[in-house]
Nucleic acid binder design. Sequence first.
DNA 1: CTTGACTCGGACACAATGAGTCCGAGTAGA
DNA 2: TCTACTCGGACTCATTGTGTCCGAGTCAAG
Lengths: 156, 156
Amino acid sequence: MKMSGGVEWALHCAVVLSAADRPVPAVRLAELHDVSSSYLAKQLQALSRAGLIRAAQGHAGGYELARPADGITVLDVVEAVDGAQPAFTCTEIRQRGPLATPPEACLRPCPIARTMSVADQAWRAALRAVTVADLAQEVTGDNTDAFTVLRGWLTA
Amino acid sequence: MKMSGGVEWALHCAVVLSAADRPVPAVRLAELHDVSSSYLAKQLQALSRAGLIRAAQGHAGGYELARPADGITVLDVVEAVDGAQPAFTCTEIRQRGPLATPPEACLRPCPIARTMSVADQAWRAALRAVTVADLAQEVTGDNTDAFTVLRGWLTA
DNA sequence: CTTGACTCGGACACAATGAGTCCGAGTAGA
DNA sequence: TCTACTCGGACTCATTGTGTCCGAGTCAAG
């Protein structure tokens, strides 16, 4: 049960991009967070493939949000970077061994798989309830000047 | 976000042990589910270390539940096998880089970590709400003779 | 009491996945 | 046209999970 460490970077980048008014290169995002630019690029590519951010190449290119920040949930970012498949996968071991359950009695998933699925749904619902815009507002919060400082640093 | 595959085995074993009235060796549990006995032993050792099952050595030894089945939650088993630490770990990258947030403003976890924590709590709460006894009752359900068949196979 | 066989427990290899890096293709501007 | 800058995918290495093995301990039977 270990989530990819790149999820944290991707979420921070999404929050930063929500404050930018022009494309931001991956290198700049990397030095802002003091992380490896080569590896951060991989996470941004994942976000791009998922359609969350849009990439612009060439001079003055970079990344920008493909949608408004309030239309991108935390779950979107997590699934884009870490994969969308559930953590638990049922291998149907109840249908194996000497006391195997007959297939006609396995039309529904076993109770264990159902329990795991319910927990997974709860987890996803909690992440779907928060958007990048919510995160950005909480980050800035009271000191609104931090917002302008960040925007200034991005354009410089 | 991949959970250890041994969690499924451990949960099935817990359900089986709730039906047994005497210690069951790991080898028997393994052939019942048609899985590697050597690897299943590792999962059972994890459950034993967590105090969920009790091991009896020597002739006619084996594993048995250390507590009543309704006192063991699915979360207990998951944490015992897969570890209890949350999937997301905040590395505090907000305190790094040229625009680092000053430490006096970081008394509380950042919004990203908070969101992840809430989702994690929801996930754990869902798993804590189901006990091994609940699983056993759902498995047997209408056909109660399967219960006696299983118990007979275990003692044979 | 001795013997024996059976059990768990931890220590030991192997494979798969994630972390991290690098260079080439493409593009916008000068 | 040229140059410099950007992304994108391919490559390598470390870490973790998967799977296996043998020795220490223990209970029951003779």
